[in-house]
Nucleic acid binder design. Structure first.
Lengths: 229, 229
DNA sequence: AACTTTTTTTAGTCTTAACTAAAATTTGAC
DNA sequence: GTCAAATTTTAGTTAAGACTAAAAAAAGTT
């Protein structure tokens, strides 16, 4: 198993391809360009390069979108492991709040050594989730199945536990924090309005009415679901 | 409230637009053409016509796909109510099996009178679901929220009740029947394999391993969910 | 059966997204 | 700082999907 030294750009491409394709479908050139803040032509060029690597990191047919190969997926998970470990470390060891860590981690993830990765992993006690509740891939780059469901699927009468939030915007993260919607929070669905998709929930003593903007970004485990560990 | 007499073609267009757009997104010209077995150019022509009706039945911006207006939605639900009532009537009154009714209903739905609709509705005791478990819109064309979740979302340790199956292919329907996966069936998830998305379930005494082909077409209510009526 | 209206198809055009190649910029190595 | 390699942009081309208009076919009417 060789260790190809990917550049920061390549790492970013692989990471974003992973995030766009983790649930099956392939990623379009345009969608990638938007996420990476580059022009579509740049994406096409990079995809051709990644597909021509030995071994190939992506599977790419022009006009048909892109998917990661097994090798590409491993490389992406290595970057994601760095990112999430760093976020956990910034919060737990340096007192950052969860809305301040993304940008910092975005730069550090590409430059830390394997040794540094092992040190912070050990210092944190081998955490399995980052501050947003996202699963941290294992040192062997294994990625457990994500069992969470969007809050938008919770119906009145059922309760659930927040597992993770899918958000990077600091303003949104602070807002979620003020609502008490952080990993581990226990919530109960009280009412649902089909017309506008608003969900009324209780968190602790407080009640909130949430729109799709939030209910599709907070992921929970329904009460009664089995779970390992 | 006037009663516009829509042709069979118009009814079919509206029905398929409803089915493609009921979960929010808009329907593309190509997707509609495929479902209706016509060329894309025919779809474009019909969409222009439907958008020019008074009142307009669809909202249509060229190259941007199509959605139903409130009037178009009502017209679509009228057809769907006919279709599903007829299916229920064929099964309960004429001894058809659930894999034989779709084609017949497809032709009858356009030609029955309002009086005929009321008669079979009354004869069946105002049913709320058709033989596949699909919700039958009310006489007032109200459509209750569908609370079902795909079987693919059920995880080991949880049990559920089959609410509906999304299938018209007679072979698939007979297969589901042989597995015991019909509306009302109680099932329990025993095992899940993330790698290939296979779900092992128990139905009565029998165990089955199901792939995505089936788990995305069978819709259930998880045990413990609240529900009206 | 002839006529009218509706719907579909054919053939060619346009729009959007994606692609290629060349030039410019950025990054990394010495 | 200079050179080489990697990446991005610009500008122009191509591909896929969707559109228009005219003609053909199908359905409905008298």
């Amino acid at each position: 198993m060789k260790k190809p030294i990917a550049t920061q750009s390549v790492q970013d491409y692989l990471k974003h391809i992973y995030e766009l394709t983790e649930h099956g479908s392939s990623a379009s050139t345009g969608a990638l360009a938007q996420r990476l803040n580059v022009k579509p032509a740049s994406v096409t060029g990079m995809l051709r390069k990644l597909a021509a690597e030995d071994p190939p990191l992506v599977e790419y047919q022009k006009h048909q979108g892109v998917m990661l190969t097994a090798d590409g997926r491993r490389a992406a998970l290595e970057v994601i492991r760095h990112h999430r470990l760093i976020e956990a470390w910034l919060v737990q060891s340096l007192g950052y709040s969860w809305d301040e860590v993304h940008e910092e981690a975005e730069r550090l993830e590409h430059v830390i050594s394997e040794e540094f990765e092992r040190r912070i992993d050990a210092a944190l006690g081998h955490p399995t989730r980052d501050p947003h509740g996202e699963i941290i891939p294992g040192a062997d780059l294994s990625m457990p199945e994500d069992e969470s469901m969007p809050l938008s699927a919770l119906r009145p009468g059922r309760s659930a536990t927040v597992l993770r939030v899918l958000a990077r915007d600091p303003n949104l993260l602070r807002h979620l924090d003020s609502l008490g919607l952080t990993p581990g929070a226990r919530i109960e669905a009280l009412d649902y309005s089909p017309f506008d998709n608003n969900l009324t929930i209780r968190v602790g003593e407080k009640m909130h009415v949430l729109g799709l903007n939030i209910t599709t970004k907070v992921f929970v485990r329904f009460d009664g679901e089995s779970h390992k560990d």
